[in-house]
Design a protein around this nucleic acid. Sequence first.
DNA 1: CTCGGCTATATCTGCATTGATATAGTTGTC
DNA 2: GACAACTATATCAATGCAGATATAGCCGAG
Lengths: 179, 179
Amino acid sequence: MSLPHVLLGLLHEIPRSGYDLARAMREELDPAWNAGFSQIYPALAGLRRRGWVALRVLGPLRGPRRHLYRLTAAGRRELRRWLGEIPPPPRHNDEGLARLAFLDALPIPERRKALLAADAALSTEIARLRALSPAGGFRSLARRAAIEEREALRRFLRAGGAAAPPSETGPRREARKKR
Amino acid sequence: MSLPHVLLGLLHEIPRSGYDLARAMREELDPAWNAGFSQIYPALAGLRRRGWVALRVLGPLRGPRRHLYRLTAAGRRELRRWLGEIPPPPRHNDEGLARLAFLDALPIPERRKALLAADAALSTEIARLRALSPAGGFRSLARRAAIEEREALRRFLRAGGAAAPPSETGPRREARKKR
DNA sequence: CTCGGCTATATCTGCATTGATATAGTTGTC
DNA sequence: GACAACTATATCAATGCAGATATAGCCGAG
């Protein structure tokens, strides 16, 4: 999808190896993006094919050989082009929201339990994000944005879950199964 | 992933065909889940194999033949089991957040432009979600939760984007609580 | 010296997801 | 009567992504 551009972004400041890139994603980009080696290595090959990165192989002076990738001028241009694009609306499936949508199917006491469990899980995840080592500049801005999102969801669950278990008030969907 | 359980959820109240399920996802579940026919039809076959749904074929009385699926008792049990599970923390890659994280790479005036564009895109998406026909019960709760998340992100971008463009020379606060 | 853990490369399998295509009847419009 | 839009089934290819595995050298602890 946009993994290639994420890699360009991570290579913007300093050259890195595939391994470095995986670590940087885990440590600097955590909630925003993640990818494993099986994606990163082929993606790097693609970037190279397009001339967006250049490869320098370091002989095994100390440890295993390293493949260091650095941005080319074309790569830098492409990164800036991508950043200037109109961002497409995110459309990923969210299991948590889907569960929430089907809570009608549970008897009332279990609904409560499920809502509490969802709240606890969110809380744990927020704590995890807060505990991550602070990444610099816009990286930390992105991370705080992610925390903000999750906290808004949690606030909503706590308020809405207690106040509005809307059963059959709304327009009951006509099943339109006549035939 | 959890598409099978989403289908069980949609079949909870009334039997539906594959086509109905696709429409229901678009209309009732919109930001929470989406899937095309190429996922739905094989998934339905899987549900049938597991005994969670039963199939009734309606002859072409009017129009093409319909394959109506309904939940079995085992399917109902499985749906409730899934809803009671501990929800896994969501971990999807978010292109919008990733872009935000790399805004360092743009010269300042273009950063502004990019932030404004992101805000506008968010605004459009929120308007789209608000305009969707209201789904009943917990469906609408899930949709409002999704809107809440997006609005929190937007608030953050408006505030943080204007007030705190943390440069790479910013105060590197490294001495958190050392323990 | 050995073992476990870390750095580092890379591949394979399988499932999830998207988008395109094929087939075919029904309904409504001009 | 032609044509478009909708209902309805289903498959295919390509890509995204997660998890496991293979190889191999380095380093510190015991």
